[in-house]
Design a protein around this nucleic acid. Structure first.
Length: 904
DNA sequence: CTAAACAACTCTGTTGTTGATGC
DNA sequence: CGCATCAACAACAGAGTTGTTTA
């Protein structure tokens, strides 16, 4: 097959269309070319329902999905033999062999009859619904799908129409009240102006029409409101700033009872603010050259460096303890490249006699002196008296105070990241090709300021000027620059607890909730399109399936100079392994180079499709979805619902899962237990989203410690039992040998060690106490105690040791302890130990389960906070147990807006 | 008309700091 | 009660997604 028209001729591509014969061939489980693992069918057992997901028509309700994900079992017998059904619509759009042409225009494709759906629906059986009901349901769904499709078509036309109009009309701003997304309507004309403006500089800003017609009209109501509110508040805010005490802050919070989420004028619209005042950014401190006596060595010789070059050496030297970086060849190579370049441009290193030293080889560089110096400084800083530390912090806080807040439409708002990122060595994540390169200091000349037209522009540092000052009301950023490694944009924006961020967060979750209304038809559609003869369509349907079912990310294309990671659309041949009959194994690096590994059971059709997409001549390195891009996917999704994109599915599925888990929960028990119930649900969502973390360094040790403590308790139980025997030997017969035996996992060796540890512990305790008392005595000017006294005291431990020894020798004769011991009393202690062991076990399990799952990300970004508020109210757990202070501020809107009946 | 570039925003795990806890 | 330890938190900066503009 020749791919001559393709830009990347080496990449194999799928055919345009899939013939019936093609499809049929895939049914014979030829080990063919689809990289299929030999059949290992998994045991299939009944799967318990985990949530009350509304069953969807296709038998893949998300409840089953989740269950199958959780226990790795399939939920459906392979009963689906769709390909015997004649696909009557053999309407080939192209000759099968002509490759690489564009696909049929979307409209044409959409017009395809939905008969296939009907046929398919008929054969798939939803095992837990009676047949009669099932058929009815299916019929309804098919009809719905038909309507939806028609709607989608109409919508599409309209959008296209609107776009054409917009182009013609340019800046004219009349609204026709159709369902064309607002953003799109507005964006086109307004951005035109923006584009033109961009060429201009600050001084010509005056001729830019600030009062753009459209925005002015749109926000008229809001503006009025603001006019009355602003002056008063401004005045107060200023007074507050002078002496901001805790009480003031509180009073302010109380009077600031603005509920934007109830304000109908807030929300969409592209104008984000009317007035904006802020003080710009904080620059990192200038580089302070190292003291004269601290120098890096080259080939054993201390060398002098130009301060700019020294800054690089400093950057490398100060992270010598991070072997992960410093011993990474890419990191070292990139660093040395930049270091040498810097040396070339700033003049070479010199030895103490002023002779040039050409630094070339990393092996000859010794940064240890720099590290030692930095480390000493760090220690010194750490060792500073508390008062001193406090003072320094107060000074810093005061210096930064002006940058912490801005005035946004007259309201005081917290700024998120007002500090310009300091220079340093770039640490990409995963195997980033640019790791180790020097991220340069950002100069004011690179920074663009975005601020209100009337506001005072913050002064750049002495002798500098800003790159540009903008008044872009459509942007929510206050300042912006580009970093030199990837030319990535960096923005200074508001903090998460600000109104704007809250609003967009709110919108995000509302959008996810809206998806609920469309999800059934979307699922029905992709089920049908999984069998489309048009390759692009089939790939798209399969991708949507994966995104919906397994919470994959969209997966944009990535460049050569980025870490090699993928998402759904960019999955490659080697990332997906197929194991008949219908198991798919995903194994790839996703965002942040986090491994995504999942063995899942998929619909037979999906399995077959993946096999087709992997067909020859594709091989490792080739894309599975070669006819699909994230934009085409999102474009398709947006036909169902304004603003629907791949990422919305993640939000939707996460919140929907959480919602169902919480709905069914009857959390009783203590508050910690209820919190744990919540966290368990949280964890399921985190696993769904593949939110991982590296196992903490001390985790294993920690687990061992816990295990040891549990065993200690179990040994205590054993001793108690032996004591019972001491009191009542008959018990041995009554309860059986096993009852009195050493617990499993504990042997004589362990006991010996355990006892030795106890004895040692006791000794330490005594010594410590002794020393302390002595110190005190000295401090009071008295004589300290003799070592004899210590020895005397240590006798307690000696006795203990002797007793243990005796015990071990006699074997199983342990005398009952305590005053008036009875079997009953011992029994009681035994039970107490039982509960302690149980709680400790769950604690240990919990910790172990959590070792590589990060709960925070899903809590902060995916789970609708209102669900947490509902849980908190329903089960009477203070919200503080779930949301930290900052999170409570971020989710203020959620905390104040729902009662316990609210549903996602 | 694509593909790359530009732009702006969300999401992500790690790191440094802080506050609670246990001894 | 003072101290050390450790977990929880907030800050951080890199890595995605999405949409628009330009070559």
């Amino acid at each position: 097959m020749s791919d001559s028209e393709d830009d990347r001729p080496l990449k194999a591509k799928s055919k345009d269309t899939i013939s019936k014969a093609d499809d049929a061939a895939m049914d014979k489980q030829l080990p063919s070319n689809g990289h299929v693992e030999p059949g290992i069918s998994m045991a299939m057992g009944p799967v318990e329902e985990m949530d009350v997901d509304k069953p969807t028509t296709n038998g893949t309700s998300s409840s089953k999905r989740k269950a199958s994900r959780a226990n790795g079992k399939s939920y459906k017998e392979a009963s689906d033999s769709d390909d015997d059904v004649p696909l009557q619509k053999k309407r080939k759009t192209k000759v099968a062999e002509s490759d690489d042409e564009d696909d049929v225009p979307l409209v044409k494709k959409m017009a395809k009859p939905i008969k296939a759906t009907a046929a398919q629906m008929g054969e798939e059986s939803d095992d837990d619904v009676p047949l009669g009901q099932q058929l009815q349901k299916e019929k309804a769904v098919i009809e719905e799908a038909a309507t939806k499709e028609a709607q989608a078509l109409r919508r599409q036309d309209k959008v296209a129409d609107a776009k054409r109009k917009a182009k013609k009309k340019a800046a004219s701003d009349d609204d026709d009240d159709d369902d064309v997304p607002l953003a799109k309507k507005k964006k086109a004309p307004v951005k035109k102006e923006g584009g033109a403006k961009k060429v201009k500089k600050e001084e010509s800003d005056d001729d830019v029409p600030l009062s753009r017609k459209a925005p002015a009209k749109k926000t008229a109501g809001k503006a009025k409101k603001e006019e009355t509110a602003t002056p008063a508040k401004k005045g107060k805010a200023k007074v507050k700033k002078e002496e901001k005490t805790a009480e003031d802050e509180e009073a302010e919070a109380e009077e600031e009872d603005y509920r934007w989420w109830e304000d109908p004028t807030k929300g969409d619209g592209t104008i984000k603010w009317r007035t904006l005042e802020h003080n710009g950014v904080v620059f990192p401190p200038d580089y302070e050259p190292l003291p004269k006596n601290v120098k890096m060595l080259y080939d054993g010789t201390p060398v002098d460096l130009h301060p700019e070059a020294e800054e690089l050496a400093y950057a490398f030297g100060s992270m010598l303890n991070s072997t992960h970086n410093v011993e990474n060849p890419t990191f070292v190579k990139n660093f040395m490249d930049d270091f040498r370049k810097m040396l070339d441009s700033t003049g070479h290193a010199k030895d103490r006699d002023g002779n040039k030293v050409k630094i070339t080889k990393f092996e000859k560089c010794d940064f240890q002196p720099i590290f030692n110096h930095v480390d000493a400084e760090r220690q010194a800083k750490k060792a500073l008296p508390a008062a001193e530390k406090k003072k320094l912090k107060a000074e810093k806080d005061e210096a930064e105070a002006p940058y912490m807040y801005c005035m946004w439409d007259g309201r005081k708002q917290k700024v998120g990241n007002f500090r310009v990122e300091p220079p340093g060595l770039f640490r990409g994540r995963g195997e980033h090709p640019k790791t180790g390169r020097f991220k340069k200091r950002v100069l004011p000349e690179q920074i663009t300021i975005n601020i209100g037209k009337e506001a005072m522009v913050p002064k750049p540092p002495e002798g500098h000027k800003w790159k540009e000052v903008k008044h872009d009301q459509e942007g929510t950023w206050l300042a912006m620059w580009q970093e030199n490694i990837n030319n990535a944009y960096k923005y200074v924006m508001l903090a998460a607890n600000s109104d704007v961020k809250g609003q967009s967060d709110f919108k995000k979750f509302e959008k996810a909730r809206e998806l609920k209304k469309h999800i059934d038809s979307i699922r029905a559609d992709y089920q049908r399109e999984l069998k489309s003869e048009v390759m692009a369509e089939r790939q798209r349907a399969t991708a949507v399936y994966l995104i919906d079912q397994f919470a994959l990310r969209a997966g944009n294309e990535k460049g050569e100079d980025e870490a090699d990671t993928v998402g759904c659309c960019s999955l490659k041949f080697e990332h997906v392994t197929l194991r008949p009959p219908q198991t798919v194994i995903f194994d790839f690096l996703g965002k942040d180079s986090i491994r995504f590994y999942n063995e899942v059971t998929v619909d037979l059709q999906v399995f077959k499709n993946l096999k087709i997409f992997k067909r020859e001549p594709k091989k490792e390195g080739d894309e599975i979805f070669d006819r699909l891009t994230t934009s085409s996917l999102n474009k398709h999704l947006s036909n169902y619902m304004t603003g629907l994109t791949a990422k919305v599915f993640r939000t939707y599925n996460a919140s929907w899962t959480m919602s169902n888990l919480l709905k069914d929960m009857k959390s009783t028990g203590t508050i910690p237990e209820r919190v744990k119930d919540y966290n368990d649900a949280n964890r399921k969502v985190a696993i769904l989203c593949n939110h991982k973390r590296t196992v903490a360094a001390g985790h294993d040790a920690q687990m061992e410690k816990m295990e040891d403590r549990i065993n200690g308790l179990r040994y205590q139980q054993y001793r108690l039992k032996q004591q019972m025997l001491d009191l009542e030997p008959k018990l041995k017969k009554k309860r059986g040998e096993a009852y009195f035996a050493l617990p499993e996992g504990i042997d004589d060796e362990w006991v010996k060690e355990y006892q030795a540890a106890r004895v040692e512990e006791e000794r330490q305790k005594i010594r410590k106490k002794f020393e302390k008392e002595n110190e005190k005595l000295v401090a009071e000017g008295q004589k300290e105690m003799k070592t004899k006294e210590l020895d005397e005291r240590l006798k307690v431990a000696d006795e203990m040791e002797a007793m243990f020894k005796e015990e071990r020798k006699k074997k199983k004769k342990i005398e009952a302890e305590g005053k008036a011991p009875t079997v009953e009393k011992l029994e009681q202690s035994l039970e107490k130990l039982d509960t302690r062991i149980a709680t400790m076990r769950t604690q240990a399990e919990d910790r172990d389960n959590n070792k590589e799952v990060a709960l925070g990300t899903s809590k902060i970004n995916y789970i609708d906070p209102r669900l947490t508020v509902v849980f908190s109210k329903k089960f009477n757990v203070p919200i503080e147990r779930f949301f930290s202070k900052t999170l409570r501020e971020k989710f203020d809107w959620a905390i104040k807006s729902v009662d316990e009946d609210w549903e996602f």
